[in-house]
Simulated assay, not measured.
Amino acid sequence: MSEVATLILPGLGDSGPEHWQTYWERMDPSCRRVHQAEWDAPRCVDWAAVLDTTVAALDGEAVLVTHSSSCALVAHWARTAAPEHLARIRGALLVAPSDPEAPVYPPEPTGFAPVPMERLPFPTIVVASTDDEYVTLDQARAYAHAWGSEFVNAGALGHINSASGLGEWPFGYALLQRLRAGPAARPG
């Protein structure tokens, strides 16, 4: 079987050059970004279709590395994806899940709310910050509980994005390595 791919799923606006997701792409050849046609006013269904096409084209398994709105994207995609596509996902690192029902969430994206609160069919880790303006720690913990995820409180890191100044973010990369090394996920 081929190497486990790492699919980078940025949130709204894509991830710029100083975002930890971009650092990971530069330092790790197994990391590749899933490019969306619309980053600023996306429809969740369109993002899910691109993710599904990407997963369908894989030669082997993948770990998903999401940020912000892409956490909700994965929850929506998992509800409708074919079992053989879900079986290709070894795990997902769900970082800084934003709350699309919160007042600060931008109005342009559509279809991300309500976030599905159902167990995900592969191992997941939710990483949240104590001072994220786009989700409360309690809401992030509720997502983790509903999704069957391990919950990691990363401390005061804001939205865990470029503004957080994390560079290569070794702490998060170690969590990715755990998911990569874990047993292959199977639907069920």
Score class of each variant (00 low, 15 high):
Met1Phe: 07
Glu3Val: 09
Val4Glu: 05
Ala5Pro: 01
Gly11Gln: 11
Gly13Ser: 10
Gly16Cys: 05
Thr22Gln: 04
Tyr23Pro: 00
Trp24Gln: 13
Trp24Cys: 11
Glu25Pro: 04
Cys31Tyr: 08
His35Thr: 14
Gln36His: 01
Ala37Pro: 09
Ala37Thr: 08
Trp39Glu: 02
Arg43Pro: 02
Cys44Gly: 01
Cys44Val: 01
Asp46Tyr: 10
Trp47Ala: 08
Ala48Gln: 06
Ala56Phe: 00
Gly60Arg: 06
Gly60Trp: 07
Ala62His: 09
Ser70Ile: 01
Leu73Ile: 00
Leu73Thr: 06
Ala75Arg: 14
His76Met: 00
Arg79Thr: 14
Pro83Leu: 13
Ala87Tyr: 14
Ile89Val: 09
Ala92Val: 08
Ala92Gly: 07
Leu94Pro: 00
Ala102Cys: 07
Pro103Tyr: 06
Val104Tyr: 02
Pro107Leu: 09
Pro107Ile: 11
Pro109Met: 06
Gly111Gln: 01
Val115Glu: 03
Pro116Phe: 02
Met117Pro: 10
Arg119Lys: 14
Arg119Ala: 13
Arg119Cys: 12
Ser129Phe: 11
Thr130His: 15
Val135Arg: 05
Val135Gly: 13
Gln139Leu: 15
Ala140Gln: 05
His145Gln: 07
Gly148Asp: 09
Glu150Gln: 10
Val152Tyr: 01
Gly155Phe: 08
Leu157Gln: 12
Ile160Thr: 06
Ala163Gln: 11
Ala163Ile: 07
Gly165Cys: 12
Phe171Thr: 03
Phe171Gln: 12
Gly172Cys: 04
Tyr173Asn: 11
Leu175His: 02
Arg178Cys: 00
Leu179Arg: 08
Arg180Lys: 12
Arg186Val: 05
Pro187Val: 06
